[in-house]
């Protein structure tokens, strides 16, 4: 990406890459205990790639944290462990122990309550226990209306809450990283990337992503018009329900019972990009959490969800 020997103006991907690297370095230089959220999806894969670039030849100077709800696709966990082994970063995995003990799951508690306990609460536990003063996430401004105005360095109070009335103006590339004791910062190096940028960058840099993004024959059931993959035998089938093998892929990755698949033949990156350019529905559609209640993303953010 950086082989700009000709002295021509930087391309938009080169510019985005350089700005993200600058953000990573600012975090490493300004905070005492940074951590990077690692959710294994395509955005996390780009984030990991950029973090490696930012500190090369040093290793990433902070740990990566995965919030494991225990309901992730099995392939995601295998991919995560392979990445940690290949790139030698410090991997932390946290599961909400109370949620685990209470056997919280997406079937009995419903997606909203389940997500709150196993994701939002778990994240707060992990951030609190680690006393992290900066948590790096992969959110992008183009994902959703409420993210369009989010800062790159987003200030959180001592309760990890986002106070939308008290955000700092962010000018040029000068980031105010100052914190009072107990406060923390959420940092979003991919703020200015779009979904197309992410895919184009993955393609041009040859970044490894889980094969769940590629169309393969997979066992699925259809519920309320959404295709859900039956990834293991914990999945509760209705009496008259039987998994059908269909060629599907995923546009976003999360907990398998809550992640909708799409019927697709796009089995490689160019086909995915082509399909994405032709398709006309928004990305988060495949995530069941957003449809639970209106304005839910804004609310989740105030509660500490990424």
């Amino acid at each position: 990406m950086s082989n700009n020997a000709a002295g021509r103006p930087l391309s938009h991907l080169e510019t985005l890459e350089a700005e993200s690297i600058e953000i990573f370095r600012e975090v490493a230089a300004s905070f005492e205990r940074p951590v990077m959220m690692y959710s294994i999806g395509k955005d996390s894969s780009v984030l990991l790639h950029l973090a490696r670039k930012a500190f090369f030849p040093s290793r990433i100077p902070f740990p990566l944290l995965h919030i494991d709800t225990t309901w992730k696709f099995r392939e995601m966990i295998a991919f995560r462990d392979r990445m940690a082994a290949t790139h030698g970063f410090e991997l932390l995995v946290h599961t909400n122990p109370e949620g685990l003990a209470a056997r919280i799951n997406p079937f009995d508690q419903g997606s909203a309550r389940y997500t709150d306990i196993m994701k939002t609460q778990a994240l707060r536990q992990a951030l609190g226990a680690g006393r992290y003063d900066a948590a790096i996430g992969g959110a992008r401004r183009d994902e959703e209306k409420s993210r369009a105005k989010e800062r790159i360095f987003s200030h959180r109070n001592a309760q990890h809450a986002w106070d939308p009335k008290n955000q700092r103006p962010e000018l040029w590339h000068i980031y105010n990283t100052r914190l009072a004791p107990g406060e923390s910062m959420r940092v979003f190096p991919l703020s200015n990337w779009t979904e197309l940028d992410i895919w184009t960058y993955i393609y041009s840099e040859g970044i490894d992503i889980p094969s769940l993004y590629f169309a393969r024959p997979r066992p699925v059931v259809e519920r309320s018009g959404t295709l859900i993959m039956v990834d293991d035998d914990r999945f509760r089938l209705e009496p008259d329900e039987a998994p059908q093998v269909q060629t599907v892929r995923f546009r976003t990755l999360g907990c398998y019972p809550l992640t909708g698949a799409i019927r697709s033949d796009a089995a490689d990156l160019p086909s995915i990009i082509m399909e994405m350019q032709a398709s006309r529905t928004s990305e988060r559609e495949g995530r069941l959490i957003d449809s639970d209640q209106a304005g839910s993303m804004e609310k989740k953010k105030q509660e500490g969800y990424f």
Partner: peptide, 10 residues
């Protein structure tokens, strides 16, 4: 790199 220009992170 043989050289770096304004805007590049190196």
């Amino acid at each position: 790199l043989p050289q770096a220009v304004a805007g590049q992170a190196v």
